[in-house]
Design a protein around this nucleic acid. Structure first.
Lengths: 354, 354
DNA sequence: CTGAAAGCGCTAACAA
DNA sequence: TTGTTAGCGCTTTCAG
């Protein structure tokens, strides 16, 4: 590059202490701050010459807009809060949340909005997180894993913060959410088990303060009725999506109804735990008891026997949540959207006798 | 609480459109902006009366400082970037990352710094993320899962950004990191297997561009030598921490050395996959082949047989990473710290014949 | 111990 | 199409 005076030329700024400002860009390209700003923000009202001059100055200086200054002016933070409402025990033992995060992250990436992760582990966190979100530090929030009785969604909505939920809310509040057709998914599972000749089909459901858990339980019952098999409370046991509690539930079921020949669990982790208990009890899977899970996570492919399961497209659901929140941030007056994804039954070894 | 004119009193601001500013606080408490600011920022140079007046005004107005304005002034963003350098396949199939995130999040929570999550899925993301981090939008960064050949850590360090790595860096760069004593952990695993009478112990190691994988492999070899068992390349197979590749590796090992009687895998997920292949091949675990994993994640407790494994305190490591980055942000001149956690061997069914 | 004033970097009226 | 001007809300000298 020709002769440069050290410490003053543009090239020498490579690792400069002070980052370039829009003033630097304006000066170097010979236009005003305003015009430089217009180019950076892709306003159409700029002459081609000015545009080119500014763009090359931007490149030369490695200019990056100062987000704080921009936020102060536009009153937009260019960031989205992602709130994980679940204690750590279940949190990442189950691959569900991780996949959802990956989807959200990739859906947000193209937009230039940042992802601010907020984990609510205990009651103390709730206040902190709510204050932060309500203070206008984010343009919108994605709430992952809210239980039906969680007041946070309504509280934030009342404060006019755009939000999107993972999972249908329990009350009929009008908020955007993304969910899978839990009821239909459960029905396909039961239909499959009944089709394999199973007659005493039990279920390990999730905590019933979560709508997804309720819907899967309802689907289970509907499936039984559809197959002409009666509903029997003794065949239903509560889990909480953790393997430990699921194992307990399985033992309870075996005590109550030793003749059961099928199990539908509301997650793969719980199904895997159930299989463990069944094997421990001397039963063979699938010969004596057929098992179906939910999610189609790594757990299902990893287990032996491999788990038949109801697949939900978790990453796609995360991307959709990102899309929805971006839309609501653009246009807060937009009506809330409810997006339902379809499930797919993946048949593996745990439910089919070879 | 007395008589209030609607729309103007403090109480009526409860769900007001415009958030309170420090000017509002100053006015209500009868001091200047400067003094109000001092109280908010806990400066000691304020009279008790002023302090009390301001504090009550803050409470009354529900005042929350505008972070953008503060950032503009202080040149601190009050946020930490957490960069996940791993593609989604492995990402959350393995509970490791989730637990680390929980630890980091809880370590950061008390400080008031926000956690900005940046996932690098493909080469295209790298530039975006590096630009973002280098532009001063975060006060520091925690890099999770960097491979040895990743140029990002050095690039960011050169730009003066405080960073902390998960895992020892391959080159001898002086950066802060948190790791577990991988070599010692592997040795305890081999010592245990040898103690159970195993003589043909194989290993499925991780990708060798990650120091942790190298260290575990070295520990494996050291353990063999210590037990008087020779090192045999035919007993070593490469995995990449994914179950699928681990299963392939296990099959390769069985082809090459059908007489193996022990397997040490560099993660629980890989160990579980290896168990699956062993069972498929008609072998019994642990009777014919004893298996030991690494991590002590849910996978280990969930598998049947339950996995013996080398526990690492993942959440504590995450919290420590948060502590280190906060310290470096406070005092960038501080010498880099290297924190090594100890492992613990957890003996379960997969390695001990009853 | 307190207040007045300056200014961080940016965008958005408003004129020209 | 462009430039000038006026703040956004905050912290921080500098006087007093």
């Amino acid at each position: 590059m020709g002769n440069q005076r050290p410490g003053t030329g543009a090239a020498s700024r490579a690792a400069s202490a002070r980052p370039a400002t829009i003033d630097d860009v304006a000066r170097l390209s010979g236009v005003s701050r305003a015009t430089a700003s217009r180019v950076v923000n892709e306003s159409p009202r700029v002459s081609p010459e000015a545009r080119i001059a500014v763009q090359s100055a931007v490149a030369q200086l490695g200019y990056e807009p100062n987000r704080a200054a921009r936020t102060l002016m536009t009153r937009r933070s260019d960031s989205i809060g992602v709130v994980i409402l679940e204690n750590s025990t279940r949190l990442f033992g189950d691959p569900f949340f991780g996949h959802l995060l990956v989807g959200i992250s990739s859906g947000l990436a193209a937009s230039g909005l940042q992802l601010i992760l907020l984990m609510v582990q205990d009651a103390g966190d709730t206040g902190r997180v709510e204050r932060y979100l309500a203070a206008g530090h984010v343009d919108g929030a994605i709430l992952v894993g809210p239980h039906g009785n969680d007041p946070l969604p309504a509280r934030l909505a009342r404060r006019q913060l755009p939000i999107v939920l993972s999972g249908r809310p329990l009350d009929a509040t009008r908020v955007s959410y993304v969910d899978v057709d839990n009821r239909a998914g459960a029905i396909t599972a039961i239909r499959h088990l009944a089709g394999q000749g199973r007659r005493r089909i039990a279920t390990i459901h999730g905590t019933l303060d979560m709508p997804s858990a309720r819907d899967r339980l309802e689907g289970y019952r509907d499936g039984l009725r559809e197959a002409g098999l009666g509903v029997d409370p003794a065949l239903e046991a509560a889990g909480d999506y953790s393997p430990v509690i699921a194992a307990q539930a399985m033992r309870t079921l075996l005590d109550r109804t030793p003749d059961l020949d099928g199990v539908f669990a509301a997650s793969d982790s719980m199904a895997a735990a159930a299989v463990g208990v069944l094997l421990d009890s001397g039963r063979r899977v699938p010969e004596d008891v057929a098992v179906v899970g939910f999610d189609d996570s790594e757990v299902a492919r990893n287990a032996r026997p491999r788990l038949t399961t109801v697949r939900q497209p978790i990453e796609a659901m995360g991307r959709e949540m990102a899309r929805l929140i971006l839309r609501r941030v653009e246009d807060p007056g937009d009506v809330p959207s409810e997006v339902l994804f379809q499930t797919e039954l993946i048949v593996r070894e745990s439910s089919v006798v070879p």
